[in-house]
Design a protein around this nucleic acid. Structure first.
Length: 646
RNA sequence: GCCGAUGUAGCUCAACGGUAGAGCACCUGAUUUGUAAUCAGGUGGUUGCGAGUUCGAUUCUCGCCAUCGGCUCCA
């Protein structure tokens, strides 16, 4: 074996002795920017020894990998600080996440936010001490012995799950942790971090396991980048749909019905505008709308499989005809009272069965906006994003097997129409595949997944696979959008189902006169209207497009003298079908403008004596964007040009 | 459901082991107003609910409910 290795860096090659550390090869780069290196594509420590020929690239602090390394090292720094402040606390895992990192601990008592400043202070001390961060490799057995001796039983459990003979350990000062790495060379490199919150988290995410105490934090390459991030978080907080919804008078929540919004008149306008929009699309795409019951005998849910699979999320009601009037479980395992529907699908099979169906009737597209109720666990409720009562732009398509791909493709087209019209640029698609518990054979699943995939390819849609996340009856396409907090929300879904038609024994007569089983496609494009409105509000910061704005025009009178003219203008706009209101209160104009701005009314129409004299108006757009005067007729023209998606 | 925090007027928030206060909103009056807050006065709270400790609880303790941050779950 040669004692020299050839290193390629930035297109140039050089020969160095075997065992040279990467840092020495990257001698041209200032140490404060360099946090790690990429050797043959793999990110490693700067102290990594070069044993073979390799191509080497620097990993800089502000690159994606650099940031990841910094965050990971910061998580270690935090763990070191925690263990020095709270001896006896065990460490578990501490990964990097989207905007920072967390570390799960098993402390004597759970951490609270009051602990964070103390931990942060200790972290800063450790940074100042400039502890070198060193990697070493030990055998699995040695590592197990070592961590056992330290009383770190979670670490031992982790190591026991690692198949390799050797594991790596990182040491900084008198502290060490099992870790794959890489890490920054010393704690001095960590200069911009903040601990953000604490939370409980189960060991390995399993609620049967012990509850650990998790601390979240974030770290950046520079103080400026951290500040910028914190500013964004603050901005996002201001856009919170719960705050904006209240301020804009759209909806409220009350403990009298947890998880169920009370839509106020303005909120209903948004709700109805979205429903109207979907109805226009339904006409174009050939859907029929139905209204089915909200409450059913549980016999329905027993047949559909909901009783078995969804009961814990259902609101149940006794049978009023029953003498005992209880919701006890009956002798055959399901109770004979009523259940509030959590989904429309079982009910829609009765719409299908209302007539004898022929292959010529298919595809049959049945839509419904009815309210659905799901008994979501109390801790999961979150404004409009996670509710117990919701409406969906729900539809079920009953079709022949040979129509599946076309129907899916048509739906994907509709998805694009909708998200394009609403200005969502970041839309992601996933294909959720066969889960552990499933009905049908692997071949059937493969075929169904293939059809969904093909339909996406036909629409030139790039998608990821979401393994084993399909519904138990069939695979699904999941469609996600991002909100202002950069949280991804699943909104739309398209699911293939041959189970429900089977359970309800749905058939159609084929061209040869024989009975065949249709396939059912479950789909929603906006998904839950509640969640969609929440996402929309955070996405737009409450500044909704004209066609969705609860109040489109506000006419502001300057004084009592022009009250009549203001009323006349408001009346005219209303007759033109616009959502216009007059503000003729005894207030100064500045005050009225401010209130209209806060209410996010897109058009403010100012009328004073000048305007009244020549029958004109002065127009101000939201945020003072534009302000000019025009004749009344011109205003109507202008407003009628506002786009409404169809 | 689990971990942690929180709950005071319609909203945002302050205070305190000795029966609560501000701003906004609301009401009344004055002002007649030109593009993000005119002035003055007034109404409004059994401090989330229930129990305990205490001479006395809104404050301390416990339970419940709800909310917030997470976990978990999500056909």
């Amino acid at each position: 074996m040669s004692s020299k290795v050839t290193v390629t860096l930035g297109g140039e090659s050089r020969v160095v002795p075997v065992g040279t550390i990467v840092r020495e090869v990257l001698d041209g780069i200032p140490s404060r920017e360099l946090v790690a290196a990429r050797v043959n594509g793999k990110v490693v420590d700067l102290t990594h020894k070069l044993e073979h020929d390799a191509s080497v690239e620097p990993v800089l602090a502000d690159s994606a990998e650099g940031l990841e390394t910094i965050r990971h090292s910061t998580a270690h720094l935090m763990a070191m600080a925690v263990q020095s402040l709270y001896p006896g606390t065990q460490v578990t895992i501490g990964p990097v996440i989207e905007d920072g990192f967390f570390y799960d601990f098993a402390p004597a008592a759970p951490f609270t936010v009051e602990d964070l400043p103390k931990i942060e202070a200790r972290m800063r001390e450790l940074v100042k001490a400039d502890h070198k961060i060193q990697r070493s490799e030990v055998s699995r057995e040695d590592a197990i012995r070592k961590f056992s001796a330290m009383g770190e039983k979670y670490k031992v459990e982790i190591i026991q799950g690692i198949p390799d003979d050797h594991v790596s350990i990182y040491t900084q000062g008198d502290w060490l942790d099992l870790c794959r790495g890489p890490h920054v060379p010393s704690t001095r490199y960590l200069k911009a971090f903040k601990l953000t919150s604490v939370a409980g988290a189960y060991w390995r995410g399993d609620e049967h396991n012990a509850m650990l105490s998790r601390i979240y934090g974030t770290a950046f390459a520079s103080k400026e980048a951290l500040e910028e991030h914190l500013k964004l978080v603050e901005l996002a907080r201001q856009r919170d749909h719960r705050k904006l919804g209240r301020e804009m008078g759209l909806y409220i929540f009350d403990p009298i019905s947890p998880g169920s919004p009370f839509y106020l008149p303005k909120g209903v306008i948004i709700f109805n505008a979205l429903v109207d929009y979907m109805r226009r699309l339904y006409r174009r795409y050939g859907y029929d709308e139905v209204v089915t019951p909200l409450i059913f005998k549980n016999e329905l849910f027993n047949t559909s499989g909901h009783w078995e699979n969804f009961r814990e999320n259902m609101f149940l009601s006794p049978d009023p005809d029953s003498e005992t009037n209880t919701i006890d479980t009956g002798p055959d395992g399901w109770h004979h009272g009523y259940g509030l529907k959590p989904m429309n699908c079982p009910g829609h099979t009765f719409v299908y069965r209302a007539e004898k169906r022929s292959y010529r009737d298919l595809p049959l597209r049945i839509a419904e906006f009815s309210r659905l109720h799901r008994a979501e666990r109390s801790g999961t409720l979150h404004g409009l994003m996670r509710v117990r009562a919701m409406s969906q732009d729900d539809a079920h398509i009953f079709c022949r097997e040979d129509q599946i791909e076309d129907e899916i493709a048509l739906n994907l087209q509709m998805v694009r129409d909708v998200y394009g019209a609403l200005g969502f640029e970041r839309v992601e698609f996933k294909l959720a595949t066969m889960p552990e518990h499933h009905l049908g054979t692997a071949e059937q699943w493969q075929m169904a997944e293939g059809k969904l995939g093909n339909a996406m390819k036909r629409n030139e849609i790039a998608y990821e696979i979401n393994p084993k996340e399909g519904a138990f009856y069939g695979p699904k396409i999941e469609i996600y959008v991002s909100d202002a907090l950069k949280r991804k929300w699943q909104v739309a879904t398209i699911q293939l189902d041959s189970n429900m038609p089977e359970r309800f024994d749905l058939t159609y007569t084929n061209s040869a006169g024989a009975e065949e089983r249709p396939v059912m496609i479950h789909r929603a494009i906006l998904g839950s209207l509640e969640r969609f409105i929440g996402v929309l509000i955070e996405h737009t910061g409450g500044v909704l497009p004209f066609w969705l704005a609860p109040e489109q025009v506000r006419v502001l009178s300057l004084s009592e003298k022009v009250e009549d003219y203001a009323g006349e203008v408001t009346g005219l706009l209303r007759r033109e079908g616009l959502r216009a209101h007059g503000d003729i209160r005894n207030e100064k104009l500045g005050f009225k403008v401010r209130e209209a701005e806060l209410a996010k009314v897109p058009y403010m129409i100012v009328v004073g004596e000048r305007e009244a004299a020549d029958r004109s108006v002065s127009v101000r757009l939201l945020r003072g964007e534009k302000s000019n005067a025009m004749p009344l007729a011109a205003l109507v023209e202008l407003l009628k040009k506002e786009p409404i998606p169809a």
